[in-house]
Design a protein around this nucleic acid. Structure first.
Lengths: 351, 351
DNA sequence: AAACGTCATTTGATTGATCAAATCGGGGAA
DNA sequence: TTCCCCGATTTGATCAATCAAATGACGTTT
């Protein structure tokens, strides 16, 4: 008594749609991939049939023939720091949304070392589970670029190509990044315009590329405003990223007469902000990354254009996939935008 | 003079490996999928050939025949709150890692409404770009369960099946969640054991399932310790999630004699903690979710077993995919674990 | 009017792996 | 010795789409 239930009415295929529309399967395929090859009325008829049958191309069959999976892979790192991590979260969300817009998908993988990641590259590309990679978290002597380049796998990078040790060669890969110095410079200028002069920098220990760059923006803006090197040195501070660290630094700097703070991250800024409030001061604080936390606290912060960065990163790998020439960029770096909130309002001369 | 450059030495296939090993293609396939069907020495020989040629199964061809993509889809939401979001981040990371372990992949999609998500379901399942879904962020009258069930798509849910309005029916879908009440009860008990009695609850406005549950854990533990309803009422507080809100609430409660705080989230706890410190008090604070921020600040917090939750959620959808019976669970809910840090050390009787 | 070119559409072949059914080679029983 | 069975392995067919080449129709040129 085998009475197989017709599970789900057989999914439509090119052929079934073709029958429905009274054309051949290839014509259906063309309607979707090369509509200009069809006569307008045929096209209309086929599209109508597709619509009626609810036909959707099978990803697998498509991939098989085209050797494309339509998938971009992205490494998901474990959560490190609730605040800092938000940047990459936002980037990933933007990347996913942008990929959807262009009919691609983002798939995740994990890896806890460069070597492990190379293994993932191999597995993902060999099975053709992914067509391209978008990398973040670049570092010196990154093994990944070379592997991908050697294996002819398209990729783009969100992050500066920190020059390989000893190599003076220009990086040849596609990358995009945000101009951190411009961000802190903008923040500093904003505070200068408000009349501040003793603007301190709450930054990370020297040695990290990103951190050094953010410090430079503050330093240059200060120098341009006529603040001497000695003064700047006294207003500079270095500590690990963190709320407590930011609070400590701000307390110290407040004591030396700082009236405003430019911070290398929102974590530091949250700390600095709370220290300022705790001390009953009105010093202005500006953070970096415009995390939701900063927004919630009313903290001014430098916002990275992550949507643009994600869109560019994706466009770049798609260009590579389709064999288009590398896309030109107006500027080497994207300019961040300062979002002004209560934490850096014009200092009201209370009393 | 056609002299095609052998682009990339033709990727090995079952057939090429078969030739290499001196067997047929099906034998190679069996070596990977049904090794028990092969004679030990044949198996060894084939595996060696696979190793030598560096063969990896093409995902596309595989999917085509098996009608499985090996992909689990997950909705990535925009970052809302740097601290709270970390929970789902951690869950996603755990899910991805677990999927890798089981030879599956996690792909992302976005949607800003239930309706948009249903459209994604349709597209992802029809193209067979995903085999199953892992859902989070459940809410009342969730349209998603019904769609997926009706379309026979396997899915599992991280989050309580908040009963549909008006339906008394038991939820039939696979879900897992963490027992929030047990978490706050544990935190409360910990503080009671330390000798605290005026333990306040810094929670969200009544009405959210998660929030009410966390409040209940505290309330029941307090009641069990003999604290009267009136006293409990005075120690309870409701506010939106946020650092500032937590600080405000804690300040108020401190004034009424609270000596310890159980908080519904780490955001609130961070605020409460800073308020306590600002007031120069030694009141204990316990947060919820054990975010990296809490760890960094030395804040005790209730840790959700997200790895287990992710593993279970994945195991469940894989069971459904493979037609295995639903997996039994020891308990309906996973028990969270209190992580004790400096913020709730035994109160030293300073002075 | 025959030959040609062009554009629209169709047919044939292919992608790589797996399912299903066929084949092969040894034992063991009759 | 012959027949049968059984496990190990091979062959044939298929999944759904796309590429490449063939066909057909129609207007133009000589």
């Amino acid at each position: 008594m085998r009475h197989e239930v017709p599970e789900a009415a057989q999914r439509p295929t090119v052929s079934s749609v073709a029958v429905h529309a009274g054309v051949s399967r290839q014509t259906v395929s063309n309607a979707l991939n090369n509509p200009e090859r069809l006569q307008p009325d045929t096209l209309k008829r086929v599209l109508a049939a597709i619509e009626e049958t609810g036909y959707v191309r099978s990803a697998a069959a498509r991939q098989m023939r085209t050797a494309r999976s339509g998938v971009i892979a992205y490494r998901l790192d474990p959560v490190r720091d609730g605040i800092g991590g938000a940047v990459l979260d936002t980037f990933l969300h933007a990347l996913t949304a942008e990929a959807e817009r262009r009919d691609y998908r983002v798939a995740l993988y994990t890896a806890d070392s460069d070597e492990a990641e190379l293994r993932q590259f191999a597995s993902l590309t060999q099975t053709r589970a992914a067509d391209a990679f978008v990398l973040v978290g670049t570092h010196r002597n990154d093994l990944r670029y070379r592997w991908l380049t050697e294996h002819g796998v398209p990729y783009s990078v969100f992050g500066r190509p920190w020059s390989e040790q000893g190599t003076a060669a220009q990086p040849t890969h596609a990358w995009i990044d945000v101009d951190g110095a411009a961000g802190t410079a903008q923040a500093t200028q904003h505070l200068l315009d408000l009349g501040h002069r003793n603007i301190a920098f709450v930054g990370w220990p020297a040695g990290s590329e990103t951190g050094d760059e953010r410090r430079r923006g503050w330093d240059e803006a200060m120098a341009a405003a006529g603040v001497t090197a000695a003064e700047r040195h006294a207003l500079d501070s270095e500590q690990q990223d963190g709320i407590l660290e930011g609070a400590d630094a701000a307390s110290r700097l407040l004591a030396t007469g700082a009236t405003a703070f430019v911070c290398a991250s929102d974590s530091l800024a949250v700390g600095a902000f709370s220290a300022v409030r705790a001390a009953g001061e009105r010093a202005a604080v500006v953070g970096f990354d415009d995390t939701p936390t900063a927004a919630a606290l009313g903290l001014s912060s430098v916002r990275q254009p992550l949507d643009s960065a994600a869109a560019w990163a994706l466009a770049s790998v798609l260009d590579q996939l389709d064999g288009r020439p590398p896309r030109e960029r107006d500027a080497r770096l994207l300019l961040p935008q300062l979002v002004v909130r209560e934490s850096s309002q014009p200092p009201m001369s209370t009393r």
